[in-house]
Design a binder for these strands. Sequence first.
RNA 1: GCCCAGGUGGCGGAAUUGGUAGACGCAGCAGACUCAAAAUCUGCCGUUCGCAAGGAUGUGCUGGUUCGAUUCCAGUCCUGGGCACCA
Length: 915
Amino acid sequence: MEYNFREIESKWQLKWVEQQVYKVCNDSVKPPFYVLDMFPYPSGAGLHVGHPLGYIASDIFSRYKRLRGFNVLHPIGFDSFGLPAEQYALETGQHPADTTEKNIDTFKNQLNKIGFCYDWEREIRTSNPDYYKWTQWIFLQLFKSWFNKEKNKAESIDFLLKDFETNGSSKINTRNHSPFTAEEWISFSDKKQEEILMNYRLVFSAFGEVNWCEALGTVLANDEVINGASERGGHPVVKKKMRQWYLRITDYADRLLEGLNRVEFSDSMKDMQRNWIGKSEGAELEFEVIDSENKIKVYTTRPDTIFGVDFMVLAPEHELVTKITTTEQRSGIDEYLKYVKSRSDRERMTEVKQITGCFTGSYAINPFNGKQIPIWIAEYVLAGYGTGAIMAVPCGDQRDFSFAKHFNIPITNILGDLFDGNEANSTKEAVLVNSDFLTGLKMNEAIKVAIEKIEERGIGRKKTNYKMRDAGFSRQRYWGEPFPVKWDNGAAYALDESQLPLELPHVESYGPGPEGEGPLANIKSWKIENYETSTMPGFAGSSWYFLRYMDPHNNNSFCDKKASDYWGQVDVYVGGTEHAVGHLLYSRMWTKVLYDLGLIGFDEPFKKLVNQGMIQGSSRFAYRIKGTNQFVSFGLKNQYVTDTLHVDVNFVDGVEMDIHAFKKWKPDFANAEFILEDGKYICGTEVEKMSKSKFNTVNPDDLVNKYGADTFRMYEMFLGPIEQSKPWDTKGIEGVHRFLRKLWRLFNNEVSGKIWNDEKANNQELKILHKTIKKIESDTENFSFNTAVSTFMVCVNELSEISCYKKEFLEKLIILLSPYAPHIAEELWSQLGKEGSVLNATFPAFEEKYLIETDKEYPISVNGKMRTNISISLEASQSEVEDIVLSNDVVQKWLEGKSPKKIIFVKGKMVNVVV
RNA sequence: GCCCAGGUGGCGGAAUUGGUAGACGCAGCAGACUCAAAAUCUGCCGUUCGCAAGGAUGUGCUGGUUCGAUUCCAGUCCUGGGCACCA
């Protein structure tokens, strides 16, 4: 009997469905355990080999936990709103709902072939009205809530309203509006009241900058902008202010920081989140501008360097720029502003070596010494961070230093010998010089003194600042959740909850609406109702989906509290680090809001996070000559100025592109022209992340067909540590397949059939068994699946060598293996005549007694170099060991007649003879 | 540029707390079985010197700590991920 994986796998997959073995109940005497993967976006490309890496890991862990007696929730669903489907609709006219549905079917088919233990009855889709009804509902809760800083939690905005009605704004820290009395509040118009409340709501509407492409009439994502031009068509892209919705995540900055201390994320993941939040302590202070009423407010973490300020820099977008620019500098500034408008934030951050800026002609006054300091604008100062203006201290900040050097601005030294004039020194340890009342103080201490002085003089105050900004929450797109909001006279009003879901209407065209509005603006009935025309971003639906799996069919609530109380936090969350600061922060914030509002019982969604590394792909590139539709082959590209575009690896053979397929790929390329080398178009290559947007995906179906799901699962795990990134290489899968066949031959002989027997296992065999149990158990617990696969291989190799076919051993081995290779395990389990499914077996208990050794083959080093091995009893004392070692011929040889200075003996480890 | 991670044979990787570097697998080489092939099995397999025994050298690079460093420290180079409208 041969290992016929196709037959076995389809047989058991069918039986598992029939017997509903993966159905999960919300009431069980078993303890609950929740294992979750970051859910997939169902791209048209289908599943690629990178997706299942995490799913297989979590599947193994879920099955393992089940063997250990837990009621395991291990669901999956689809993050089915998103830009690619809409882009596809724009290109083909097919409705995103239809293509998404089709894509999901493909995904499910692919997933099912790999043998995951999902309860499909709990599947969710973010684009399903039954689901996004609750996304909208949560949006309304956010809209109707504000963050009470005194209580450090969110609460209904009704509390704030009541407070305004009785106390005016006197009891709270006002935000972006003038204080008012209770009487004034009551006398305000609806619109005015709404405007004020908008400064408090957890989702709010305000004006913000977007990437605007006039030619396409639409807003573009950063990754759709390449060198200031649109990826599609190469049209110019500029910054434009538009009305946007925002999520007031900054109010939760401190809570998000604090929560990190209570979750099991890797330190690097926590670092990334902390850095993203970017909490810093410093001071905000104002500089007067000569011959002007205007004052420039700056934020600095280093007020101690106030006497080293040699110039000021405003972000080019800063509102004062036009006001303070002198007539002589006007044309220069205008030109510079034009240049900056064409630059993406990304470019401004990345290309720091390129120093640009322009003098406004105005001067500010240093409030402490009256020194006149020139005011510049420069792209390295970003409008969104701090106050959008900085006091530049060239001796202490490298960017300020480079700027000063570049524009010949004289540099003041406040660091004494610690500043060498060649580069800035950002130390906090220096003793200040040239610093008036701070002279002689160490910088660390001077910070405090400077802040005190600033507050005393009334020119500023101590301030905590966050790098994190409120998250943009609207997209000028079609394929997302509609906002349950109506506009009236410039104010936004929430729909009543009974009107949910506000369904996404059908549109004829997916093109943008007028004035850069989303496609929904083209729908008359939508506009007449004054509905919001933008939609929610991808992270809306994914910010709370883990709750919906607990209670997926509930029509009365997003998730019954009883269900969320039963399952609690996600015990293990598996996903990539690319979500470190986006999705993870948003879902953590939403969880905190829901917790504050009493809707769930925990305020951190994920107890433990396992980061799966990226399976990288090998990408192919084409080079488009800037501003044209002409493509130049890799070898000739340096003769032109080009933009680099990804090409689908599926129509590149090695590095040679199929031009015909490329032209058919996207309408923009239909009329593309090519500059060839040797009659071929050669693509550039690079190893980078495997992703639909990079067109470098490999399909798991082919591998499952050829080797079976069990082989595929184990091979993905065998590739290396789960958290490490590695480029995909199909080579090597044969080895894992051979292992499974070898395992099969422990049960069945290809000629004579069944060979397993009922003999009792001997000590040697029990030792192998318990060694294996121990290693598999600890490796599985630690998500070290690659070494677990090796352990199985070693075990099967050893059994084959000693011809052990004993059921007593094999049935235990099968249980150990079942999370990794469920199909073959189930088949062999039934061949052994065991009752029921191996899924419900009990994980074998490890017994130390079988592994006890009496001797150890010690490595013997002389001067730290390993020279020989000697077997010595583990009982032996230091002096006994020394005698044995020194009488050894090899050791004697290396001693060369000298007597040892010292003998280091580490029991159970090694011996080192030092001469 | 900033934040995070990673660099070990031809390749993927292994190496509890600082204690035998290269487990396991792929590829390669040699052999057995076979008319032949597939499958399977056996042996070899970092580099280098040597007939061999055995030596030297070796975990990106440069230093340091230690009896002993892939592991700890400092610096440096390279690769990957993120940087707010891809998800």
